[in-house]
Write a protein that binds this DNA or RNA. Structure first.
Lengths: 342, 342
DNA sequence: CTGAAAGCGCTTACAG
DNA sequence: CTGAAAGCGCTTACAG
């Protein structure tokens, strides 16, 4: 085998000490421009690739990363948390400490407080589900400017200059639309149900994508209405159990995990068989109604992976200098038969 | 922070040298039973966790891993190869050399020759798509007995005592069946098309699962026939273009990537609009006909990940002693809208 | 601005 | 059967 090129080889070739090469490698400054160029040339020449194992061993520094999301819709965020915990465990031996800040509500002020604290206490990184509000975007951009490594996940806010990990909302809605177009019977009357506040832009996009595709594929279908509930699954349940049965519809699109209570409400009223239901997420409750046949299809979004990746990307940036890049999670289509393999 | 426990701490606690602890850790023998027990107790006591970075740094050994699969249905195996290459790149700096043996055909003798060579030349690992044949199973079990780390992927053979990475064939067929049951119109007449030899057991399972679910969900549908072609996409194409249009059917299930030429054949005859087509895999050609609307749904199976994981698991076993466990790849459901996010 | 030295936690020969 | 020592490739103070 061709001997692996080490930092020492580079140092020797450039006629300098290892410390100097290290400074060049990490732009730690305090290196004469000429020396710098020579070292860079040697690195290029010898095709030097740093050995990550050695780097991690030698690196004694410790890092702190804050993770901020909420816990409304507990079953979903529980899955996100599992991913966060997995990343925390994986990177703990490398000196990374992960601290979750889990808000009870979708609340702009609470989130702002977390961001401020992160900046003040000089955390090295922040993974966050950014709410749609100018103060939030500003605060995040400010944190980034001060050197905090930030990833946003689950909800995308265009004006935050950080990488995003999560669903493409529009496209996931289109996917739901295509499926509905394939399974709904002729001249179906349908409604759209949403259950979230105005802070989660990504979820709004889903309804738009859904309508777009359904409009194009199934001009015979008619939309009876679009109902938005403020993050309150109980209301959605009552609506589904009491109002929906009287509406004379045969298809429902629920834009998030609230599809679980939609399926429940409709099923308990014995009108389920006649209504096609498509929703989002794969929480234990959704699984239950998917299995029972009350929900036909659900769109999944890799919550565990969202939690994992948003932390992992920060760790790799901090530890190995890897650039953080956007990552769109899979738009999974789940029916009863592939639940266990999704 | 609580200081991390090192191997040296354990050695000191047990009153032995670091070398001895190392021997115990890796069962290298040559340790008195009493000493061994004492060391084990200390490891337990101090909750010692080996530092992977340090281990990799110190480990100078190099490993060779052979990977064996075929190239019939090139587009599919190309995706597998990408995963293999990614793993090869990732583990190369750790002294692992990956050598692919890509057979032009599904041929038992050629595969047998590869296995023999792996044993003779003392490769450390083998990732293989095992063909359904007693000689193969025997040879693989023999290789395993001789200490070769073996993973099987894409096709599962029960009698090989190695871990498996790939689809659950039966369940993927059931998933296809469920989807067909949702989109086929009343009293549809359907056929099943397969294009593979008798060496790939996993693919046969798909048709079984499909029939099972369709039989239960849609007693109104009638199966007109099941057609098996020996790994010959040209024949499938001709069949689809010439025979199928005269059969008076409105649904087709193709059990693998041959769905691409089925879609093509049917589409070119202008009868596509009336026929629902569901198949497997997400090759460039399948994507094309999915986009055009000639294929309705395809079931994906993470080919890239199959290639990656079958090599990665061997590397982690060799390098870090991690046990190799079965991994069922995702049963993905893909329609035109989620192609890019699958 | 720069280099020599110590150390990260483990494995690998090498003596005993 | 067992221990002391060297070394893996990098980073981190510490002198200069």
């Amino acid at each position: 085998m061709d001997k692996t090129v080490t930092l020492e080889d580079v140092a020797r070739a450039a006629g300098v000490g290892k410390g100097t090469v290290d400074r060049v490698l990490h732009n730690r400054g305090r290196v004469a421009e000429k020396t710098r160029e020579r070292v860079l040339a040697c690195i290029e020449e010898l095709k030097y690739r740093p050995n990550m194992a050695a780097r991690m061993l030698a690196q004694k520094r410790s890092y702190r990363i804050a993770v901020c999301f909420h816990d409304l819709e507990h079953e979903f965020w529980e899955q996100v948390k599992e991913g966060v915990d997995r990343a925390a465990e994986e990177y703990e031996p490398m000196g990374v400490q992960v601290e979750p800040f889990i808000l009870p509500q979708i609340d702009v002020d609470s989130q702002l407080a977390v961001i401020r604290r992160v900046v003040e206490e000089k955390y090295d990184g922040l993974a966050i589900v950014p709410y749609c509000a100018k103060e939030i975007s500003d605060a995040l951009n400010d944190a980034i400017a001060r050197g905090v490594q930030v990833t946003t996940f689950n909800n995308r806010e265009e004006d935050v200059h950080a990488c995003y990990i999560g669903l493409d909302g529009l496209q996931s809605g289109r996917t739901a639309g295509r499926l509905m177009s394939m399974i709904a019977s002729p001249r179906s009357r349908y409604i759209i149900i949403s259950a979230h506040g105005s802070r989660m832009r990504q979820i709004d996009q889903r309804a738009i994508g859904f309508q777009e595709v359904l409009g194009a594929q199934r001009p015979d279908m008619v939309c009876v209405g679009s109902f938005v509930f403020e993050e309150d699954f109980d209301k959605v349940y009552r609506f589904s159990a009491e109002e929906v049965p009287r509406m004379g519809i045969n298809a429902i699109y629920a834009t998030n995990g609230c599809v679980a209570v939609v399926g429940k409400g409709v099923a308990e009223n014995g009108v389920g068989a006649g209504i096609r239901i498509i929703g989002h997420d794969l929480t234990p409750t959704v699984v239950r109604y998917l299995r029972s046949g009350d929900i036909d299809v659900t769109i999944s979004q890799e919550p565990e992976n969202q939690g994992y990746l948003s932390v992992q990307k920060i760790c790799r940036k901090l530890l190995a200098g890897e650039e953080m890049e956007d990552y769109y999670t899979r738009i999974g289509i789940v029916v009863s038969e592939n639940i266990a393999f999704s």
